[in-house]
């Protein structure tokens, strides 16, 4: 799931204090699960901002709202009028949501990010999130026993480990496991260690962000959508 963490309150206050009417706009899917930007956190942030404004003697009206997801236009529709009555939207959705709403409002009003979106992660225990995938667009997990070297090895080596492995930990920090130490152990257990003996050729990174912004287009659905629009247009429904 997408994991994020709320921006430090002082940073948010610096962003918000110049405005008159602010809407803290929560998203109730991924960022709610990680207790960063859901409807509940939006409400809490709103209350904190109101009290900070009162303390600083700043005249600021702050309200909060939340919808299921900030990455689908239809969810925004019910609140579009309400949103337009504010002069700033502080979106606590992930970065996708902030972009999507900013595009939707087309510059009519600013949309600021309330949280720092960080990574796709797992939740080994309540309140603890670890990065396990970097969205590189060309998965190699079948070669490394299900442990991703691109994201979990600081140097994204395909022929690790490097010389910096220290007691199974990475040179970057002794709390970070060395991915290749884990990969070797895992492949041993799986009985396929010799797969690691071949030298992996240089990767094609273009499938990731290095290849420029990406999009996925499912033709069988888009064709259906176009057809829908054509019928609607001909019947003059729209």
């Amino acid at each position: 799931m997408i994991v994020g963490q709320q921006k430090p309150f002082d940073e948010i206050w610096e962003m918000v204090k110049g405005f008159k009417k602010v809407l803290v706009y929560g998203c109730n899917t991924c960022v709610a699960i990680c207790h960063a930007g859901g409807g509940k956190e939006a409400e809490i942030l709103t209350s904190l901002l109101r009290m900070k404004a009162a303390q600083e003697g700043v005249d600021l009206q702050v309200d909060h709202a939340a919808i299921e997801r900030h990455c689908e236009p239809e969810f925004f529709e019910p609140l579009d009028e309400k949103v337009r009555t504010y002069d700033l939207v502080l979106s606590t959705a992930c970065g996708v949501g902030v972009n999507f709403l900013a595009d939707r409002l087309g510059g009519s009003m600013p949309v600021y990010p309330g949280i720092n979106t960080t990574f796709y992660g797992g939740v080994p225990e309540a309140g603890f999130f670890v990065e396990l995938c970097g969205g590189c667009g060309n998965c190699v997990l079948h070669l490394t026993g299900g442990i991703c070297p691109i994201v979990r090895c600081s140097k994204s080596l395909m022929n690790g480990p490097c010389g910096g492995t220290n007691n199974g930990k990475c040179e970057v920090s002794n709390e970070t496991d060395c991915a290749w130490f884990l990969i070797v152990e895992r492949m041993k257990k799986l009985g396929t260690l010799e797969k690691l003996y071949e030298v992996q050729p240089p990767r094609d990174w273009s499938t990731g962000t290095h290849g420029g912004p990406r999009r996925v287009s499912l033709e069988h659905i888009r064709a259906y959508e176009e057809q829908e629009e054509k019928n609607a247009a001909t019947e003059g429904r729209r």
């Binding site: 140097k155 080596l157 910096g164 040179e171």
Partner: peptide, 29 residues
């Protein structure tokens, strides 16, 4: 492979922990 830029932060010098590393290819490659 080269020491990771976060690694230098561990020493006395400041280094550039905020730098964007490359690691396009690794040593064998």
């Amino acid at each position: 492979a080269g020491d990771h830029q976060m690694f230098s932060a561990a020493g006395k010098l400041k280094g550039h922990p905020g730098a964007k590393n490359v690691y396009d290819v690794d040593t064998c490659q």
